[in-house]
């Protein structure tokens, strides 16, 4: 099982991706998609980082929806900042201590931080313990760190169970 279907989630995603790319949901494309969805994970298995299991799929859906909402709401806020008075911005570098050492979770967290406007993840320390985040308009550095940890890191840790 492990050898012939290394990661069912990846296979499912590849299958969906193939159907989207073909833009054709006919049986023939579905069969071809199944073939690629089986072949690619088997070939690429040695290259992958260690991936955590998704412990709580329901929570993942909620998290994705929340991130989408945040992207929309915060983009409006940033648009307003850009259009009103760029000289009165309060940019800041803040360091966010991380509670997890899983590469995959850190990557997702850094991407989410970058996608929600107002913050860009700029660097990660060599020991994978601190994330450097640049904020566009930060009122209180400690509050920003707390909100990133509580809003994004805590649910991610729960979803991947680490």
């Amino acid at each position: 099982m492990k050898r012939w279907l290394p990661s069912p989630m990846l296979s499912l995603m590849l299958w969906g991706l193939w159907l989207l790319l073909a833009n054709d949901f006919s049986p023939g494309q579905m069969v071809l998609g199944v073939f690629f969805a089986w072949l690619i994970p088997v070939i690429t298995e040695p290259f992958w980082l260690r991936r955590p299991r998704i412990v709580k799929p329901g929570k993942l859906v909620m998290f994705v929806l929340m991130v989408h909402r945040d992207i929309l709401v915060a983009n409006m806020a940033v648009a307003k900042l850009i259009l009103s008075s760029p000289s009165q911005l309060r940019p800041a570098f803040v360091e966010v201590p991380l509670d997890t050492d899983n590469e995959f979770v850190i990557t997702v967290l850094a991407s989410v931080v970058s996608l929600t406007p107002g913050t860009v993840s700029a660097d990660i320390s060599a020991d994978r313990r601190t994330l450097l985040v640049h904020g566009l308009d930060v009122e209180d550095s400690a509050a920003l760190v707390a909100s990133i940890k509580q809003r994004y890191e805590a649910p991610l840790k729960e979803i991947f169970g680490c």
Partner: peptide, 9 residues
Amino acid sequence: VQSTRGEPW
């Protein structure tokens, strides 16, 4: 910019 708090690494 001058007003940036914190330092880049």
